[in-house]
Design a protein around this nucleic acid. Structure first.
Length: 415
DNA sequence: GCGATCAGCT
DNA sequence: CACAGCTGATCGC
């Protein structure tokens, strides 16, 4: 597809329409309160998070998209100036609140960009039915796939099953305080489930409560530590050390919901020089859905990304002519064609199992996100790449204030 | 002081 | 390793 038309989760200059799959910061890098490159298409929930995430953002740029129905856009070819017609459909990605996949259709063909997604949908799920119907109309030429867990080692249960496991851990510790690690957006359904099963409120830090209220949750969450023993805390403040500290005050266990298999660090020998040698290190992978990682810490395989099996089912459903992974940051990046290329037909090139892309290669791969096909453009865009902005600075003062509030809340709960 | 970027950490 | 972040240092304005 010609460059200069649309970008998905990329915010550099040069596109006529910008698409945001969801409000996680690795997808909004480059967005800021002063960004104004063009119209930005996203879900209603994502749009509602803009004022708090990006103060001063020009909200008139936002275009809330309908779910599961087609929208037409009229763009201009940057090279010829002629009109280009493009249709897109947003589909629920079930990754975090407001997350979407985008299906694009035009003279260039048909692309499906999944963003991050979890395919633990059942047969009656609207996303699945929408996708099946749309693909029957016209097949997908290129699937841009969330390949985070595109490896058979990544096997874990549905979120519903995992949520029950979390509830089981809590009920089996009736007089413990519980802390659950979460990020700034996502896993609300897990917390709601725990709340319903245990008939208990969930403490969250004040800034998180603001987000939760914007998402439309009511009553279940509180910032008052005295009315619950279950607290959701930022993942970055969640560690064995934190738990050991809390246990000097009150018996407390931590629960880490994550799709990553919990790996222990390489065994440290007396000879420290051996540390870091991946060839000689011994790793222990934990395949169980629940693991008592430490006296005070459990890990549960609760994931907002699809497991290997679900990725396979998804590709089988979409049957794309070709596909590309959109996650390139991992050093164990797996080309989805390696495991699932057969679904795409026989004309695929030989595949790479594991590759560690060098930085230049990563840069190239990231360009996939803006559908830049021309090599000339790649070179130009490479230079522009330095101009990336970041949003977190514009929020720093506000966040600093919020942090102080979180800290005082922590202090008061310890005292 | 402010915003942007990067190294370091989990 | 690193799901999706946060923190602190540094640099230019």
């Amino acid at each position: 597809m010609e460059s200069g038309l649309i970008s998905v989760d990329r915010w550099t200059k040069g596109s006529q329409a910008y698409f945001l799959t969801h409000m996680h910061s690795d997808h909004t890098r480059g967005l800021s309160g002063v960004w104004s490159q063009g119209p930005l298409y996203c879900s209603r929930i994502t749009a509602s998070l803009f004022p708090s995430r990006f103060p001063n953002f020009d909200l008139s740029l936002l275009r809330v998209v309908p779910i599961s129905s087609w929208t037409s856009l009229s763009l201009r070819s940057p090279s010829s100036g002629s009109a280009v017609s493009l249709h897109f459909m947003a589909i629920d990605a079930h990754h975090c609140p407001g997350s979407l996949m985008f299906l694009f259709r035009g003279d260039f063909g048909c692309f499906l960009y999944t963003g991050d997604f979890r395919w633990d949908a059942d047969e009656s799920d609207e996303a699945k039915n929408t996708l099946v119907a749309a693909i029957n109309e016209s097949p997908v030429d290129i699937l841009y796939l969330d390949n985070t867990y595109c490896n058979p080692i990544y096997s874990f249960p549905s979120r519903q099953v995992a949520a029950n496991l979390v509830a089981d851990i809590i009920t089996s510790h009736p007089s413990h305080d519980i802390i659950i690690a979460v990020d700034s957006l996502g896993k609300e359904d897990l917390l709601v489930h725990v709340s319903r099963i245990l008939n208990i409120k969930i403490w969250v830090w004040p800034e998180r409560l603001l987000t939760i209220h914007l998402l439309g949750f009511q009553d279940i969450f509180t910032t008052n530590t005295t009315c619950t023993r279950v607290r959701a805390v930022p993942r970055y403040s969640f560690s064995i050390q934190t738990l050991e500290g809390l246990n000097t005050m009150c018996p407390t266990i931590g629960i880490m919901p994550s799709g990553l298999p919990w790996m222990k660090r390489p065994f440290k020998r007396d000879d420290d020089k051996l540390f870091g040698s991946l060839l000689t290190a011994t790793y222990e992978t934990i395949p169980r859905a629940v693991h008592r990682f430490h006296d005070y810490m459990y890990t549960v395989h609760y994931s907002d990304h699809s497991c290997y099996e679900e990725i396979g089912e998804f590709i089988e459903l979409v049957k794309p002519k070709s596909m590309k992974g959109i996650v390139v940051s991992s050093s164990c990046y797996v080309d989805p064609l390696y495991y699932f290329g057969r679904i795409c037909g026989t004309s695929q090139p030989p595949q790479v199992l594991l590759m560690r892309p060098d930085p230049a290669e990563q840069l190239r791969a990231v360009r996939i996100k803006s559908y830049s096909a021309s090599d000339k453009t790649l070179v130009l865009e490479k230079e522009k790449k330095r101009k990336r902005g970041d949003s977190h600075s514009s929020l720093m003062r506000i966040k600093k204030r919020a942090r102080i509030q979180v800290k005082s809340a922590k202090i008061s709960e310890v005292d």
